[in-house]
Write a protein that binds this DNA or RNA. Sequence first.
DNA 1: CACACCGTGAAAGCTATTTTCGGTTCCGTG
DNA 2: CACGGAACCGAAAATAGCTTTCACGGTGTG
Lengths: 310, 310
Amino acid sequence: MTQDVKEIFGTAGATGGAPPAPAALAAKVRTLAPSMTRSMQRVAEAVAGDPAGCAALTVTGLAELTGTSEATVVRTARLLGYPGYRDLRLALAGLAAQQQSGRAPAITTDIAVDDPIADVVAKLAYDEQQTLADTAAGLDTVQLGAAVAALAGARRTDVYGIGASGLVAQDLTQKLLRIGRIAHAPSDPHLAVTNAVQLCAGDVAVAITHSGSTGDVIEPLRVAFEHGATTIAITGRPGAPVTQYADHVLTTSTARESELRPAAMSSRTSQLLVVDCLFVGVAQRTYDSAASALAASYEALAHRHRSASR
Amino acid sequence: MTQDVKEIFGTAGATGGAPPAPAALAAKVRTLAPSMTRSMQRVAEAVAGDPAGCAALTVTGLAELTGTSEATVVRTARLLGYPGYRDLRLALAGLAAQQQSGRAPAITTDIAVDDPIADVVAKLAYDEQQTLADTAAGLDTVQLGAAVAALAGARRTDVYGIGASGLVAQDLTQKLLRIGRIAHAPSDPHLAVTNAVQLCAGDVAVAITHSGSTGDVIEPLRVAFEHGATTIAITGRPGAPVTQYADHVLTTSTARESELRPAAMSSRTSQLLVVDCLFVGVAQRTYDSAASALAASYEALAHRHRSASR
DNA sequence: CACACCGTGAAAGCTATTTTCGGTTCCGTG
DNA sequence: CACGGAACCGAAAATAGCTTTCACGGTGTG
């Protein structure tokens, strides 16, 4: 009995069932930071900030450096997805070697109020590229595959999102419609719930929320979940409330934000990449019908692109 | 003199005083092989042959694999210049990571129908990164600066976009609203024209269209232009019809597309980067009011993020 | 105000690495 | 051919590092 309980807790605590992260460590740290305690954050920060330096330290050394205890260091390693500190250290060594051989760590500065416009462009582009790389590295392909399979076989699909995530929801909906899948993205939370009631086994519901705790998005997903639909959550916090009702969780990466660069920006980039992956995956699986549907929608729009040509 | 020579030999021989080898491990193995005993050679061979595999093994594991004892493994590690097996293992992990990252750039191909899901993720991420870099490089900062100035001083702003570009238009609108600017993104083309009639000098109209020849978007921009508003076009074709009525043209990059990867995907990424640049630029120019408006909207939404927290 | 719970570090427990030590083999020598 | 010595090797002891347990202190809640 007690063993069962323990085991369940063990697996749940390990958050990402995924294999140990190879290079996307900084991303993982940022993603999981919110669900960390203060002292664990200190450890995570040290690790992300100086992989090479930390790789040279023993548990005790790192504990002293961060002013915590060995236990906390091990706990942090576990949270990051490694079986223990030993393995985290190996990954760290790998990371260090990689960035040593690779290019320079580049621009890490925030955007300032008095930055010239050219700098703004460069920094934004760089940050978004970084976000894409992190997201790609951190995506669980098993979950993604399962989500694609569900979407490809769905009778109909509902996509929930509010605010910036609402646009991503609409993007996914547009794409699915283009390849002949039936999809809706209700913008009104009440309508969303009303719709969700109609879903049943064989249908799919997708919730998109960066924080993972947006009530207006969780609610319809819960309803869909309880009515037997397959549910997918796209969120930046793998442990957030929304995942309670999600059969498949797809994690987006979280970039550091600042006053002039709200989190919405990078989370949107990240979410869109995930959505694109879903789309392409579904298109692959339903290639024949998808291709003809695409061609048809293209054809239908063609005449719209000539009107004002003079 | 002779001392100098000795010293040189000592360091060059690398046997002792040198710091632990970073990557040139295979070379070191070959150099030192002759001076090794039989069982040590077996260990060294295994290590040089499969760094990644050996990095995953404990002393005992490696000893068993090579049919030797722990002591021999440690002795070999020492001979290779490391203080002990622990450090050799770290170096091995680094080496493995390095050669792993070495072979990656093979993703210039299009996405195929039978690509595994992991490849899809990698290719999409890579392509979008490429798009971002291209866009950033191709953006005319003078035009961008002028557009920002116009937006920052605008009494009100209308943003036109249809289909995928419509979402980008909404994104820009949401952002501007968040920092206290008055903005609209009419989704109905007729309403757009109706709205455009109301614009006058001091107002701004933005048209977003990848092709640059979407009638439903050009029309309202033309109306706004003729009523004296400052007009901005975000398009992938610098010479397209839409630019006729644009005071400032911002060019987005066009990536190659394919059947499974419609142009909509990269054009959207590109457009969003431009929109983000506009947003940050405006936020910089109106910093005081922007910051307080951001804070206010954040505050107003705070309570929405707790509802389903347990 | 009491209670339960979470985060935390000290210390016990255990695994992996290092060291020691003695047996074995191989070579050179008487 | 027998013997002595030296180098090589692995078993097992010793140690260092990693992991787990447990109890304390702080915080939020009924």
